[in-house]
Amino acid sequence: MLEHVELFFKSIFIDNMVFATFLGMCSYLAVSKKVTTAVGLGAAVIFVLAVTVPLNWLLDQYLLRDGALAWLGPEYADYNLSFLSFILFIATIATMVQLVEIVVEKFSPALYNSLGIFLPLIAVNCAILGGSLFMQSRDIQTLGLAFNYGLSSGIGWFLAILAIAAIREKIRYSNVPAPLRGLGITFIITGLMAIGFMSFGGMLTGGDEAPNEVEQNTAQKKEKVGEDKIIKETKENTVSYNNAIINE
């Protein structure tokens, strides 16, 4: 239970799709001019992520990863089809989006009218494929956790687009330097928001009082993911900085 809670908050705040990994930036920038449309797209992203991540988890677990085909019989045990994951994941996503569109249109025309135009956009939203790929590279253990991961990353994305849309509606009344208007200022505000979100980083490691073990665990987990090379590098930098001070 605790790991569910941890993953939930971690994916919303610390590993926020927009602010920490820059996924789904294209639609984030293009569809954030008005709060109402932003809410529609955000809801569609939550929905599709919560459906496709568990589905791709099943595919990964029983079809793609090293030795995943063992359930077919011992002679299949050493097949590794993971090089096919891109094409299978994207096929799942494209089909699911189409399917979801049809189902929603049939059973809830009201929802379809508000989500409808965004659903086709979502097939090519990097946040969706990124969710599945991060699920694979972070080695998420159970189906329940995969569902949780999809849902909470979706909520994180929703939060981000809602915030930027609200800010952009307000910024219309401000006097922004002409060359920065529109896209430029949006980039810079997103950067500032990302810096703000970095402060959530201490939330799970518990700041200074926390036992070192926890930090080490998270560090090990994170090392699998490439983006964390950056964090390592900054650590090295601080180490060298400290050395420099000692040398002096």
């Binding site: 602010f19 820059f22 060359p179 896209l183 200022i185 950067g191 970095m198």
Partner: peptide
């Protein structure tokens, strides 16, 4: 090296352009 600075650098490039 942290990710937010990438956004700000793009913002500055847009500004210059």
């Amino acid at each position: 090296l942290l990710s937010p600075m990438a956004l700000i650098v793009v913002g500055l490039i847009i500004w210059v352009q």
